[in-house]
Simulated scan of single mutants.
Amino acid sequence: MRVAIMQPYFLPYIGYFKLISQVDTFVVYDDVNFIKRGWINRNNILVNEKAFLFTVPLKLASQNKLINEIEIDINSIWKDSLLKTIQLSYAKAPFFEEVYPIIEEIVGFKEKNISKFIIYSLKRICDFLDIKTNILISSEIRKNNDLKGQEKIIEICQKLGATEYLNASGGKDLYEQNEFLNKNICLKFIGSSSITYSQFKNTFIPYLSIIDVMMFNSSKSIVEFLNSDNL
Rank of each mutant, 00 (worst) to 15 (best):
T203Y: 13
S194I: 14
V223T: 11
I210K: 03
V107S: 02
I205H: 05
N167I: 11
N184K: 09
L160T: 07
S121I: 09
E224S: 14
M6G: 02
N134A: 11
R124M: 02
P94M: 12
L53S: 06
D73Y: 02
I125W: 07
D212G: 06
N227H: 13
N41H: 06
M6Y: 07
I14R: 04
K18Y: 02
V27S: 09
L82W: 05
G191Q: 10
N167C: 12
L19E: 11
I114M: 02
I72E: 00
M215I: 03
Q150F: 06
A4Y: 01
I210Y: 01
N184L: 06
I125A: 07
E69D: 14
A168D: 14
D73A: 06
Y90P: 08
N43A: 04
M214H: 02
A61R: 00
L226F: 11
I106S: 06
N75V: 00
L136K: 15
K123I: 05
R142V: 12
P57I: 01
E224M: 06
G161H: 03
F52A: 13
Q177N: 13
G191V: 11
L160M: 09
M6W: 03
I154D: 08
N41F: 03
A91Q: 15
N134R: 15
N33H: 14
F204V: 12
S209K: 01
V32L: 02
Y165K: 00
I137R: 07
P8R: 00
F95N: 15
C157S: 07
L160A: 09
I35F: 02
F189I: 10
V23S: 05
E97R: 14
S115E: 04
S76L: 08
V32E: 01
N178R: 08
K59S: 09
K116H: 11
E71A: 07
L53N: 13
K172V: 15
F180M: 10
C126P: 02
E104S: 13
Y16A: 08
K92E: 14
I185S: 04
N145H: 09
L226H: 05
E71G: 01
F96Q: 10
I153D: 11
I141V: 04
R142C: 01
V23D: 07
N217P: 03
S115M: 00
P94W: 12
W39G: 12
V27K: 05
K143Q: 10
D80H: 06
M215F: 07
M214L: 15
F180A: 11
L129K: 05
D130V: 09
D80Y: 09
Y207Q: 11
E69Y: 06
I211W: 03
Y165N: 01
K188Y: 01
Y90L: 13
R124V: 00
N167R: 12
Y165G: 01
R124N: 06
L147K: 11
L231T: 12
K172E: 15
I185R: 03
G38P: 03
L129A: 07
V27Y: 10
L147R: 01
